[in-house]
Design a binder for these strands. Sequence first.
DNA 1: GCACCTTAATGCGTATACAATAGTATATGA
DNA 2: TCATATACTATTGTATACGCATTAAGGTGC
Lengths: 247, 247
Amino acid sequence: MEQELSLINGAKPQPKRLGKNGDGDERHEVIYRAISDAIIKQQLQPGARLREDALTEVFNVSRTGIRKILQRLALEQLVTITPRRGASVTRPTAAEARDVFAARKMVECGLMPEVALHITPQDVSELRDMAKREHKALKAGEQSTAIRLSAAFHERLAQLSGNATLAAFVSQLCSRSSLILAVYGSAGNLGCESHDHEDLINYLAEGDGEKAKAFMNHHLMEIEASLSIVEEEAVAPDLHQIFGMTS
Amino acid sequence: MEQELSLINGAKPQPKRLGKNGDGDERHEVIYRAISDAIIKQQLQPGARLREDALTEVFNVSRTGIRKILQRLALEQLVTITPRRGASVTRPTAAEARDVFAARKMVECGLMPEVALHITPQDVSELRDMAKREHKALKAGEQSTAIRLSAAFHERLAQLSGNATLAAFVSQLCSRSSLILAVYGSAGNLGCESHDHEDLINYLAEGDGEKAKAFMNHHLMEIEASLSIVEEEAVAPDLHQIFGMTS
DNA sequence: GCACCTTAATGCGTATACAATAGTATATGA
DNA sequence: TCATATACTATTGTATACGCATTAAGGTGC
């Protein structure tokens, strides 16, 4: 549970305290991405605590900035902030897992016809490239990279619909899905295996929105089915319920 | 454009600086709600600036807290934060308006069958009550109340589906819709008039999810059609495109 | 020996102070 | 009189300092 925080600071050898405001916004974006990535890639596992002081040291920004980032992550449900206990990587409940996949089925499938209409040959080749890289990562055993690429694929797909609002929503759902995979996925079987993505691209390239829609539905159901979504409940056992007392 | 900020502080006669941490979180939630409500009720119109100092005075909290709240509102797209210019109520673009309504059609319609399955007589009477109050407000000419109640109705409906994730998303979409109505709606015709909501409840009470779905689609299309969504474009004309220069 | 109380340490919530920047106004020169 | 440049003001971005809460450990009393 306790992990080394420094590992998420992949490419920033102490920014040298670049003072008050060396393009400040940029830095925050970078840090946000770093933490987000670390969570999605499961370098930071559900339940891992994210102490503000530790992050402050790692990224060399003040707590103010860290807090801003943590709150953003909290709104996206990647981290959970408990009032006086601090932030930690959220451990999705079974209900949340169900909700997220239901939402993905509804939105991502609904988007497919639109995508099929708008897609260009350029987009197709880009998607194929992404699928190829994902496949390669999977074969090389780089799980975290594969998960990340898979999420990126689904996000890119949603963007192609042209609806920025729904694309952003899908993006969030994909991030949360990565967490869900981390908690409820069995070791060997991590979603989006096989050639599903390649097949999906073919349908879209043909302009067959309905087939793509049906296939996406199947695809998501398969991923969900591969999970073992059972409530762990260890966190806060409901003593009232267990012992049948009212107060 | 410049409005009186104090009007959003409806019911808090100076909390008397209740010190360091008198259930601090609670206060923030209240303030968040107050600002959010004021935007949705169009007491704060799109483009209105939200200066941190002013809010600090009105609500009697430090800028730190205000900033937190503003950032939350920004993530929900209710306010826009421009890097060194501060926060203002967002003025939705035409593209955003289209995206939001497309999203609402997809999600809210998709949720109807689920709602029809889960709904209880208790829920039905609650919804009828909400619809009645909305109608009354509309007849009494209380526009802002009516808009707020209408949004609340749609949100409650989404909640009844049992999917918290999608419900939260719908909630956001409804908030943004209020803004869109404020910008693109014609004066007289503010959405959700007539007895649409009552009819919808009837379909749901009968358990006819498909009819409810179709009706919801019609309902949302009607609202969207009543808007005059034309790009104002004054905001940030793309000079590169206009003058055809590459750099 | 066990339980409870006290104390210390850790860590977050809040406020305040300082730095930097964008917008505005004014002054000066042509 | 108009245009340009400079100085100023208003407002945000960032960091730091302080205070309270919670937790854990150690000591003392029973």
